[in-house]
Structure formats: structure tokens, C-alpha cells
């Protein structure tokens, strides 16, 4: 059997919530003198373990605050877990926040390069795919004007085009299947389906159970940082719905 593309082994993420945020020297000393450095611990994830095989489509469900976003952040490498280990064998393209790397002062074209570079792509690759990205975003007319003049829908379109055209090994989607206008919405869900069929590994977070059932093979159910269930999507979804 092939090596799994993502291995999560006993991952725990613990946050330290100080009662008030201390981030200056002055406050730190005041609090130390007053012996007032109190913290309380909060577990966003507790002993999570699972593996994802190449080409699998994984759904993550759970109520708000269950640790879904934290799990995605750990998979993307944004956060390191407090305990446990994670291994990812491939590049990750997060659709968490479309256009997170945009610089408003610069033009759409410049931002394609900036954002592509942030996703770890080379100049050569971006030169080659520049036309495709522009065409897909339907923003050819505005590509030379600064992004600050874009509407939020336009920004999302551009971000989506970049994130899906860079061909990463793993696609992470955090409820963004509704980007832009009706037309683009259709186009973007078609694109995601196409990528999934191509065999790209996908992790999808959604509150829409129907979507999870339709689009994913396996589902993880998180509740208060614990994994309540991990298995075939239709089974887990059924359990989840029964629970509500």
C-alpha cells in the first residue's frame, strides 16, 4: 500500500488563555509584580489521529468551536500542534481565506504573482499559467487596476482562480463553495468537482451535510476537540444528524 499523504498522529492542540492578553513588557512586569500572571488551558484538539490516502476526499463536520479550523490550520502548517506529530507529503493549497495574501495597493496582475509566490510557486510556473488564471477569473479588463478598487466578489474570484490553478497536491476548502455571483458559483463548484475527479486530495469543511455526503468519501466528526467518529461519509453523516 502507498504511503498516506497526510498522517496525523495523536495530535493535541492546547492554547493558553491568559485572562487578559499580555503582550508588552510594561504589562508583563506589572503583572509579575502583582503575581497576576494567570493562565487557563484550553484544548482545541485532543488526541486526534487519522490518515488520509492520496486522492481521498475527506469531510470535516462538527458544531462551531469543535476545532475544525484549528485542524485545518495544523494540516496547512500554519500551526504546530502542542503534542503529537503530523506529516504531509505534498503541497497544500488552502482555500481557507481567498486572497489572504493580496496587497490592496497593487494590481490584480501583480497580486497573481504575489499570491502564487506565497503558495510556493516559481516565476516560471506563474508565467506559464498567468493567462489561464486571468481568463478563469473573468477579470481580464480589470487585471491592471489596483485590487483596492475590486469588489469583495471580484477579490474572491481572483483568489479562487489562483488557488485552484496552482495545482497543489492537497486542496483545503473551508466553506467557500459560494464564491461570487450565481454564474461563478456554478463554475467554481464545477471546478472543484473536476479537481476532485482528477484525483487531488481534498479536505472539505462544511456545515452543509448534503454537500459533505455528496462530495466526500470519508468524514471526520469533531466535537469539542475530540474525534467522535471517522468513517464512510454516509454513515458518519447519519450519526451526526441523528445526534442533532
Amino acid at each position: 500500500m502507498e504511503n498516506p499523504i497526510i498522517t496525523i498522529d495523536n495530535v493535541t492542540m492546547q492554547f493558553r488563555l491568559s485572562h487578559e492578553k499580555v503582550n508588552s513588557i510594561k504589562e508583563y512586569f506589572i503583572r509579575m509584580l502583582k503575581k497576576n500572571l494567570r493562565y487557563s488551558d484550553f484544548y482545541a484538539l485532543k488526541n486526534i489521529s487519522f490518515q488520509v490516502q492520496k486522492g481521498q476526499r475527506i469531510g470535516i463536520i462538527g458544531p462551531n468551536g469543535a476545532g475544525k479550523s484549528t485542524l485545518l490550520r495544523i494540516i496547512s502548517g500554519i500551526m504546530k500542534p502542542t503534542k503529537g506529530s503530523i506529516q504531509v507529503n505534498g503541497s497544500v493549497s488552502p482555500l481557507l481565506e481567498l486572497g489572504a495574501g493580496f496587497d490592496d495597493e497593487f494590481s490584480g496582475a501583480e497580486n497573481i504573482y504575489l499570491n502564487g509566490a506565497i503558495l510556493g510557486k516559481t516565476k516560471h510556473f506563474l508565467d506559464e499559467h498567468f493567462e489561464e488564471i486571468v481568463a478563469y477569473s473573468e477579470l481580464a479588463e480589470f487585471i491592471d487596476s489596483p485590487v483596492k478598487n475590486y469588489s469583495s466578489g471580484m477579490k474572491a474570484k481572483l483568489g479562487f482562480s489562483i488557488a485552484t490553478q496552482v495545482e497543489s497536491d492537497i486542496l483545503i476548502i473551508d466553506e467557500v463553495l459560494g464564491v461570487g455571483d450565481q454564474n461563478f458559483k456554478k463554475k467554481s463548484s464545477a471546478k472543484i468537482k473536476e479537481l476532485m475527479e482528477k484525483g487531488i486530495t481534498t479536505i472539505l469543511v462544511s456545515h452543509n451535510i448534503e454537500q459533505i455526503r455528496k462530495l466526500t468519501d470519508k468524514t471526520i466528526w469533531l466535537e469539542e476537540g475530540c474525534m467522535k467518529a471517522f468513517g464512510e461519509s454516509c454513515e458518519v453523516c447519519e450519526q451526526y444528524e441523528a445526534n442533532e
Binding site: 496547512s76 502548517g77 500554519i78 481557507l96 481565506e97 489572504a100 495574501g101 506565497i118 510556493g120
Partner: peptide
Amino acid sequence: AKLIKKIYI
């Protein structure tokens, strides 16, 4: 911060 919170670099 905005960037670091959203994407790994």
C-alpha cells in the same frame, strides 16, 4: 499577521 494566520510560509 494577516498572512501568517492564513497560509503557511
